[in-house]
Simulated scan of single mutants.
Amino acid sequence: MIYASMSGNTEEMATAIENGIRETGAEIDVMDVNDCPDPAVLENYAGILLGAYTWGDGELPYEFEEFYDDMDKVDLAAKAAASFGSCDSFYPKYGAAVDLLNEKLTERGARLIHEGLKVELTPEDDDVESCKEFGRRFANELLFSKQNK
């Protein structure tokens, strides 16, 4: 999982998703996008989760831009993937960063196994549970995919 968080909302989502994944017994590596300068690392994993808040009127956060552009150099064929992020309904494009990440993952050949998970601003208790469930479903889908190969 690679994510960007400015106010801590997307980081809180990432932690809840990680907890959901670990509840299934699966392992996960979690990195802030600032600590992962090379998207080629994504090729080492069967499953990919990307998280980002939406900036301004529908852009990726600045700290994700270079990583996003450099994803054009990676082959994610047959990788299971999903995206998530905190959003603000004040802006005209709700959660556009999640949509942009999903589009990039698909463009690079990944197989989206979930719709993007979008949470309004700070995750409330029910949002945290939704994030955990998102993680559990992601891990279970990955395990199911591996068993059927």
Rank of each mutant, 00 (worst) to 15 (best):
D29R: 12
L121D: 02
G85E: 05
T106G: 12
M13R: 00
A4K: 08
K79T: 08
I48P: 03
E12W: 06
G20V: 08
E11Q: 07
N102V: 09
L121V: 12
I113M: 14
D57C: 10
Y53C: 01
D38G: 04
R108A: 10
Y62Q: 01
K132Y: 01
K118F: 11
Y68W: 01
Y68F: 13
R22P: 07
E12L: 14
S145Q: 13
Y94P: 10
L49V: 12
N9P: 02
H114M: 15
G25K: 05
A110S: 02
D99I: 12
E133S: 14
S83H: 00
T122I: 15
L60A: 04
C36I: 02
G85T: 11
N9G: 10
G47M: 08
V33R: 05
P92Q: 11
R136L: 06
E59M: 13
G116A: 05
E11H: 08
S83L: 07
Y68G: 02
A40C: 10
W55G: 01
P123S: 06
D32P: 06
E65L: 05
N102I: 10
D75T: 09
Q147C: 09
M6F: 12
F134R: 09
P37F: 08
V98E: 03
A82H: 01
A46E: 15
E120K: 07
F90T: 05
E129D: 14
W55V: 07
D57Y: 11
N148S: 14
S89E: 13
A26R: 00
I17D: 08
D126G: 12
A81G: 14
D125N: 09
P92C: 08
L50T: 02
S7V: 00
S89Y: 06
F64R: 05
K149Y: 13
G135R: 02
G25T: 07
E43H: 02
D32S: 08
L42W: 10
S130G: 11
A16F: 11
G56W: 04
F144Q: 14
D99L: 09
L100Y: 07
V30M: 12
V33A: 10
G56V: 11
E59L: 07
A40Q: 01
P61W: 03
E11M: 06
I17K: 01
F64Y: 01
P92N: 11
M31A: 10
F84V: 11
G85W: 07
G58F: 07
E11T: 00
L50C: 11
G51H: 04
D75E: 12
E63V: 03
D127A: 13
